[in-house]
Design a protein around this nucleic acid. Structure first.
Lengths: 358, 358
DNA sequence: CTACATGCTGAGACCGGTCTCTTTTGTAAG
DNA sequence: CTTACAAAAGAGACCGGTCTCAGCATGTAG
């Protein structure tokens, strides 16, 4: 039987000091590992601390020091394997440097993102890593910066915000992926992405407030135009923000009269849902339709056929941005860096020539 | 150009009080939303706070109140979709009740788990949810409990620790899954699981210190013995703790002279690696080998054939344990509950009769 | 023997909130 | 015009650490 929750007040420095017959200041020096103390006193304080089972109150500590050794991370969606892997990169880098990580989910909602930032700032994290869900409303990010706390951006850049940023070459990646499809003979290629949009069809690039999404669409369009494809923007589909939405989008796409012969998906979660829709209609990849997706999610290698992907250095993305932030936390005052990591296409079996119609 | 990190000292209650020409106590009442203040004063304080861009210092706040409105969560591996989904369940329940969540990863290492618990306790979280990585060394968990902070256990029970616990019917689930294979005619079934073990082959159930793992193995063995299978423990493989280890295990299994005709995997990450190994050898499912895995990971439905799985109510697992903890945080003093959620088999296409040899 | 540097310890302010207790103010009854 | 009493505002202690500064003892050089 475990002891009843006695709510025993945790021991404090003062308690230890009393037990060791020294002043609070001296006990604090030993316990906090600063200043200078004689060996004899150190020993007796340490002994008293152990006897009382003393644990420092990190709250009080970081209230006076102003440091918490914590990095706050706000990501769009932890359930997306893209982010969980990036977070591991961040955690590993943080741990190596003696920092801890607090994670908060924004669900890609600007309001939740603001709330998360407010929370983390309130908890006095030393610095933040954010995946900004949009570029229109960034006052909360400006505030972080203004409060003197370092901020670093992950996966999405904000031109107006001059802070350390790590992204991938989204535009290039989209061009290369699109070219793979074009080279295979496709002319009717759909691009499906997760950004919230008003209306799925027509759009203006300036309506896309997430840099990575915009870059990719831009690359997609460029590659299409380059190949002489007419009005490629007709085939861009926005709004794949949930299972259901993606499913609806995919169904529309596959049943329409101008059914694409190839689809490019902007992340593996979307691709999976599209794949399901394709399967359900009894269509075959790559004979009936070709598919490429961003993010080399682990399952993409085990489907039949395996899926051709844009391989992003996700772990490195997280690891690098954390390193940048930590460097800043340690007092580096170099001008902000904007790193762009390279992606690569992994050719597997999901791309073939377009089907010949009657 | 954003303003240089001016390191402007954040505004405090005292600053606001001064600006509004009231006492610190009064300003605090308005800002903290407690006590009673006249409407006029409230208005002027609020205005001053806005003008100064005041943000409360949660650290200082929770230092005096003793509450932080934070739930600490320690899970084995955030990258495992099982845990990310459970964490979403926790987060949703927490958010609904006005709590925030701090996440820490133990990597299934007991030392990291202890460090994480120490950190969270130090940060004075209000309560903890832990997925204990083993049952031998639980002093740190006892300590949480002793310090008066509520603790709840997720997915893994500890008989010696009488706290709120939510698990699934692991033993039953394993029995049912094994029966599916037995009913299909299999007699040589391997069970592959992730627990750290000294030696992969022989083992004693008492050597398994993770309750869910033990329960499942127990169920597997029971079902096998029930079917008259001789020494089924020969076919239990421990140690699938990493990509590489799992791969090695799978290769051994598939190349051995007593190659199993069916495999039961204890989680989807393991199953995926086994699937890869099977594919690479050119073997086909279910003709050459049958496969069932715990956890209805999203990819299991899109492979060819789709994989038969043990569907665990993962989201509910997280949601429920969080609710239990929150109830306790709100002062409920009922005796601890141990909830066991039900699982179900989803029959898909990865189980067939064993192949006939020559 | 005095002067001064050095090492160690103690006293107490401080961080930014909360909260108790006291004082002031406003209002209505006598 | 008091008096009574509630409502509102203020003063200051407190939480548990850190950190500055002062004090004291000892060591060493002049």
């Amino acid at each position: 039987m475990t002891k009843a929750p006695s709510r025993a007040r945790p021991k404090t420095v003062a308690d230890v000091a009393r037990a060791a017959n020294v002043s609070k200041a001296t006990a604090a020096r030993v316990l906090g590992g600063y200043g200078v103390v004689s060996d004899t006193v150190r020993a007796s304080v340490t002994a008293a601390a152990k006897a009382l089972d003393y644990r420092p109150n990190e709250l009080a500590r970081s209230m006076t020091t102003g440091r918490s050794d914590i990095i706050g991370v706000v990501v769009g969606d932890i359930e997306n394997p893209f982010f969980s892997l990036a977070v591991r990169g961040i955690s590993d880098a943080a741990k190596a440097a003696g920092f801890n990580v607090i994670l908060a989910n924004s669900g890609e909602k600007i309001e939740a993102e603001k709330a998360a930032v407010r929370l983390l700032i309130g908890k006095r994290v030393d610095g933040l890593i954010v995946t900004p869900s949009e570029s229109r409303d960034i006052t909360h990010l400006r505030d972080i910066h203004r409060s003197g706390r370092p901020l670093a951006l992950l996966d999405r850049a904000l031109p107006e915000l001059d802070v350390d940023t790590v992204t991938v070459d989204d535009r290039e990646a989209a061009i290369r992926a699109t070219r793979v499809l074009i080279d295979a003979g496709h002319r009717n290629i759909a691009y499906v992405t997760a950004v919230e949009g008003n209306g799925h069809e027509y759009f203006d690039l300036r309506q896309i407030y997430t840099s990575s999404v915009r870059e990719r669409i831009d690359g997609f369009l460029a590659a299409c135009r380059d190949a002489g494809i007419d009005r490629p923007e007709r085939h861009v589909r926005l709004g794949a923000t949930s299972f259901e939405a993606t499913r609806r989008l995919a169904d529309e796409l596959l049943s329409g009269s101008e059914r694409p012969t190839a689809i490019l998906a902007s992340d593996s979660v979307i691709a999976l849902e599209i794949l399901r829709a394709i399967r359900q209609r009894g269509m075959r990849i790559p004979d009936d339709i070709s598919l490429i997706t961003f993010h080399d999610a682990d399952w993409t290698g085990v489907t039949t056929p395996p899926i051709t992907v844009v391989d992003q250095p996700v772990y490195a993305l997280g690891h690098t941005v954390a390193e940048l932030l930590i460097r800043r936390l340690k007092g580096d005052i170099k001008p902000p860096e904007r790193l762009v990591l390279r992606t690569a296409i992994i050719n597997r079996g999901s791309v073939g020539p377009p089907p010949v119609r009657w």
